[in-house]
Structure formats: structure tokens, C-alpha cells
Deep mutational scan, measured.
Amino acid sequence: TVKFKYKGEEKQVDISKIKKVWRVGKMISFTYDEGGGKTGRGAVSEKDAPKELLQ
């Protein structure tokens, strides 16, 4: 599970739902399947990112 803040809201998403991951400076950005055909997005700092996300 990845915990992150998006627009001031605390969120979390299961690693299995993450589609795409990329690095922006010291942040790790990602998109994930929100269900219902929607794609969500989020970002975590490199130090807070789970190891599975960095692979």
C-alpha cells in the first residue's frame, strides 16, 4: 500500500493498482486504477516511497 496526499487529502492505494511510475526530481509520481475506468494520480517523496514502487 502506498500512502500519499493529493490536493490536501490523505489517500492510499494498493501497489497492485499502480499502472505507471516515474521520477520527478526527489518525488516519485504515479498513476493508478481508481476503478470505474478512472485513472488517479499521486506522488510521494523518494524517502517515503515503498521499495516496490522504486523497482
Rank of each mutant, 00 (worst) to 15 (best):
G36Y: 07
T39L: 14
Q12R: 09
D33H: 05
I15T: 07
V24A: 10
A49P: 02
E46D: 08
D14L: 14
E46Y: 14
F4T: 02
L54T: 09
M27E: 04
D14W: 06
Q55Y: 11
G8V: 02
Q12F: 12
D14H: 14
S45G: 06
K38I: 12
K51C: 12
M27W: 15
K38G: 07
K20M: 10
T31G: 02
L53T: 01
G35V: 08
F30T: 00
E10G: 05
E10P: 09
G36H: 13
V2S: 01
K17M: 14
K26V: 12
K7D: 08
V24F: 11
I18E: 00
I28Y: 05
K51I: 15
G40C: 07
V13M: 04
K19P: 00
P50H: 05
V24K: 11
P50L: 04
Y32S: 00
K7L: 13
Q12D: 07
E9G: 07
V2M: 07
K38W: 05
A49M: 05
V44I: 15
A43K: 12
K17C: 12
V44Q: 01
Y32A: 00
K47C: 11
M27K: 08
D48N: 13
K19R: 13
G8F: 03
G25N: 06
G36W: 08
E9A: 10
E10Q: 10
D14R: 07
T1Q: 11
K20T: 10
G35M: 05
E46K: 08
A43L: 15
K17P: 00
E34D: 12
Y6I: 11
E46I: 14
I28S: 00
G36R: 06
V44D: 00
S45R: 13
S16C: 10
P50N: 04
R41G: 03
D48P: 01
K7Y: 09
R41H: 12
V13D: 00
L53Q: 01
R41F: 15
F4M: 03
K11R: 15
V13F: 03
D33G: 03
E10D: 12
Q12S: 14
V21I: 13
S45M: 13
K47A: 13
F4L: 03
D14G: 05
T1P: 05
R23T: 05
K5V: 13
F30H: 00
K51P: 15
Y32R: 00
F4C: 03
K26M: 11
K7N: 13
V21F: 07
T1M: 14
I28A: 01
S45H: 15
E46A: 14
V24H: 15
G42S: 03
G36L: 08
I18G: 00
V2K: 01
K3S: 11
R23L: 08
R41T: 11
S29F: 15
T1Y: 14
P50Q: 04
Y6S: 10
K3E: 05
S29D: 04
I15E: 02
F30Q: 00
S16I: 12
T31L: 14
F4P: 01
V13W: 01
F30C: 00
R41W: 15
Y6P: 02
K47N: 09
W22A: 04
S16L: 10
I15S: 03
K26L: 11
D33I: 06
K47Q: 13
D48W: 11
K11P: 01
K20A: 11
K47L: 12
D33A: 06
Q55A: 13
E52I: 11
F30L: 01
I15H: 03
Y32C: 01
R23N: 04
K38D: 04
Q12V: 15
P50S: 05
I15G: 02
D33S: 06
V24P: 02
G8M: 04
E34H: 05
M27D: 05
G37E: 04
Y6N: 06
K5G: 05
K7M: 14
I18M: 05
V2N: 00
A49K: 01
T31F: 10
K19W: 09
R23W: 14
E52F: 13
S29Q: 15
E34M: 14
G37D: 05
R41C: 13
E10M: 13
V2H: 01
T39D: 05
A43E: 11
G8R: 03
I18T: 02
S45K: 13
V44N: 01
Y32H: 02
R41S: 07
F30P: 00
K38F: 07
D14T: 07
K38V: 12
M27Q: 07
G8Q: 04
K19V: 11
K26T: 15
K51N: 10
Y32N: 00
K19E: 08
K7S: 05
D14C: 09
W22N: 04
G25P: 02
V2A: 02
L53N: 01
G36I: 05
V21S: 07
V21N: 02
